[in-house]
Amino acid sequence: MTSYVITGTSRGIGLELVKQLLEKPPSSVAKIFAITRNTNSPGLSVLVCAHPDRLVNIVAEVQREDSVKKAAAEVESRLGVSGVDVLINNAGTLSHDSPQVEDVSSDLLREVFDVNVVAVNQVSAAFLPLLQKGKKKQVFNLLRNWPPSPVNAYRISKAGLNMLTALYAHEKAAEGFTFVLISPGWLMTDLGSSWADLEVEVGTKEVVRITEQVTPEQNGQFLNIHVPGWEDKMPALYDGKQVPW
C-alpha cells in the first residue's frame, strides 16, 4: 500500500494524476495527499467526496516555506507512524517571454525560478523526514523537455530543477532514495493549450507507469514518456528513453 504526496493538483496533470491513482485498488494506492493553494478546485472536490478515506486535500502555498512545513506536519499527523512513499513535485509555472534571452524580465525570471526550483526544494526538504520513514523513498520532479515556444525563463528554471534533482539523487542514494525527472510531454492542459500534442490522460498515464516501474538504478535520470507511434516526434519527446544531461 503506497502513500503519495502530489503538488499542483487543482487542475491539469496534477488533478489527472490523482484521478488515475484513485482508479487503482486501495491495496496498491492507500492514501493520496493532494496539495493545492486553495480549495477552489471543483474537480478535486468531487474526488475527495468520492474517496474520503483515500484522498486528502492539503492547502499550502509551495512558494512559502512556513506553509510547506505546516502542510508536512498535517500529513504527518494524519499518517501517524507511517511515512510517505512517493512525492510528486508537479506544481510549476510557464510564462511566455521574449525570444531573446537578454530581454527576459528580471522579475519574471525570479518568479518562475521561485516556483519551479526554490519551491520544489522547499517541498522536498519539508517532506524528507516523512519520506525517510516510507517504504519506497521516491521523488519525481516533472518538467517538460524543451518546449518549442519562447519560454526562456521556464527553460532556465528547469535546467536548475535538473541540477537540483541530480544533487538530491547523489546525496540521498545511500539512504535508498530514488530521485527522477519525468517529462510528461506537451499535454492539453491550461498551460499546454489546446494546440498540444497529447490529451492529458495519455501523458499522465505514462507518468503513472514510470512512477510504478522505476528502479533504484534509474536514480538521477531524466526520462521521457513512451507513446507508441510518437517515437519520432521531434525532438523525440515520447520515445521512453533517458534524456541526456
Score class of each variant (00 low, 15 high):
V46P: 09
V46I: 15
C49Q: 14
C49V: 13
P52Q: 06
P52N: 05
D53S: 13
L55I: 09
L55F: 06
V56R: 12
V56F: 14
N57G: 11
N57R: 14
I58N: 10
V59D: 02
V59N: 01
V59K: 03
A60R: 02
E61C: 08
E61Y: 09
E61T: 08
E61R: 06
V62P: 00
V62A: 01
R64E: 14
R64H: 14
R64I: 10
D66C: 07
D66L: 09
S67T: 01
K69V: 02
K69R: 13
K69Y: 08
K69E: 11
K69N: 11
K70M: 11
A71N: 01
A71D: 02
A72Q: 04
A72S: 10
A73M: 07
E74M: 06
V75K: 04
V75T: 06
E76N: 12
E76S: 15
E76L: 05
R78E: 13
G80D: 10
G80K: 06
G80V: 08
V81M: 13
V81N: 15
G83Q: 03
V84R: 03
V84H: 04
V84M: 04
D85V: 03
V86G: 00
I88C: 01
I88P: 04
N89M: 03
N89V: 02
N90M: 03
N90D: 09
A91N: 02
A91M: 04
A91R: 00
T93H: 08
L94I: 13
S95D: 12
D97F: 03
D97A: 06
P99F: 01
P99H: 02
P99Y: 01
P99K: 00
Q100N: 15
E102R: 11
D103F: 12
D103W: 10
D103I: 07
V104R: 05
S106E: 15
S106Y: 13
S106R: 15
R110I: 10
R110V: 10
R110M: 11
E111C: 06
E111Y: 08
V112D: 01
V112C: 06
F113R: 03
